[in-house]
Simulated assay, not measured.
Amino acid sequence: MAVAMASDITACSPAGRIRQGWRRREGELAARLEVLRDAVFDTVGGTTPLPRVEWDGPWRSAEVVANLIHFCIARLRHVKAADTATAERLCGLTLELQQLAIDLYLHDTGQRGQRLAECAAGLSRLRAIPDTAALLDIACEEIVLRCGFQRAVMSRVEGQSWHPWLAHFTTERQSESWFANWIGSTIPLDPRAPEAQLLAKRRPSLVYDTSNAQVYRPIIVDAGGSRSYVVAPIVHGNEVVGFVHADHSPLTRRTDEGDRDVLWAFTDGFSHIYERTVLLERLRRQRDQVRDLLAVAVDRMDDLCESGIEMARQGHAENQESTPILAPAGYGNVGDLTEREAEVFALMVAGATNRAIAEQLVITEGTVKSHVKHILRKFGAANRAQAIAWSLRAE
């Protein structure tokens, strides 16, 4: 499946609810910061330039808070001693800004820790996937569900080009044909593009603003409408075989260092899981080949043994044409059979087919055939009827 969408169940999952809580908390902190910025602006006068609060980049709020605190402290140095009201107002704003800085730090560290924990849970689920095809099919879904992104696109790398391959989106509106039209397309790797630098350094790249970066605009900006994204490599052995793009579109929120680190943690773990799964698939194929070879060898050995017995029996029959058919001296009888072979032989005497014997004894039909061969060999018989006749005559 090249394009996948998150279902309502996914949206209501614990990870989805946690993600909504993150964004709600970010909105609350950004609103507090805007209120404090306006209060500082009113206190120091409308002609003073102050840092702008960016709603699409919550991670820069800490920088804005630090600038406002330094501005208030610098302003306090120039307040006249008689102007106690302004001094008290600036001190109060400084304390509120410091508290906001602490809240921003706790929110950022808590959010990052929770996202990394969800990332580890997603990787743990991928370890149970038995084959590479299924592993690749759900990788993008796990990135969106666990790592806090709105969409993820996986691409294959071949030489000096990359090819969009798989994707997962959170909303149905994003599943329009823009990505389907790009699946399998060949996109050249511009040496100045973040993707080319990723191949050289094997490290993720953060593009904060696509309008000022050397990105491949036809798919990333024109078709995908991405304003900011992160891209991380998928490594197999010593070679980058693919990479993952992720962003928060259609939200206005830009990606940040936290997004880069979380996606890198996921793709690094996924690379190891993918390599392990490839090796396990090779091992299973080799195991099946060895089993087939051994089965063929056993059948050939049985055929050789039976052909030798048949040739000896025919020679003996030619010398004693007038002698009644009796169980040859020195050949086995029912007492030579194992317990399981005796059970199979009893059913043979009753006229049961191999399939009926297998159903009766709860074994495979192949196992029944093996037991029949052993029984014929021990009796020195050419076929089932001869073995049964000799056994009955002996009795």
Rank of each mutant, 00 (worst) to 15 (best):
A317Q: 07
P204M: 05
N319C: 11
S249N: 07
C147P: 05
T252I: 06
D137Y: 02
V298G: 05
T47V: 12
G225H: 04
I9V: 14
P250G: 04
G16Q: 03
A382K: 02
S161H: 08
L29Y: 06
E26Y: 01
E88H: 13
R17I: 10
S249E: 13
G110Q: 15
A6R: 00
G21Y: 01
G46Q: 08
L189H: 03
I220W: 13
E88G: 09
N333R: 06
P191R: 02
Q98K: 15
W59A: 07
A232S: 07
A133F: 04
G45M: 03
V372D: 05
D56V: 02
D103K: 13
L337N: 05
T252W: 07
A317D: 12
I183C: 13
A74S: 15
R282C: 02
L90G: 00
V44R: 04
I309V: 12
H248P: 07
E63M: 12
E339M: 06
V35L: 13
G330K: 12
D137T: 04
A87V: 01
T170D: 08
L100E: 05
R202K: 13
I183E: 07
G258Y: 06
L376I: 00
T267H: 10
L100M: 08
C91I: 14
R173P: 02
A213I: 09
L100F: 09
A117I: 12
C147H: 09
L90R: 00
A2K: 14
R377K: 10
L76V: 03
H272C: 10
Y208H: 15
D299M: 11
D303T: 07
I102C: 06
Y105R: 15
I357P: 03
R192P: 01
I388A: 12
I325C: 04
L189W: 02
G315R: 11
A342W: 03
R202N: 15
V262F: 03
A350Y: 01
T171E: 14
S226L: 14
N181P: 11
E343F: 02
A62K: 11
E321R: 10
V349M: 07
T84Y: 08
P51L: 02
R285K: 03
A117C: 06
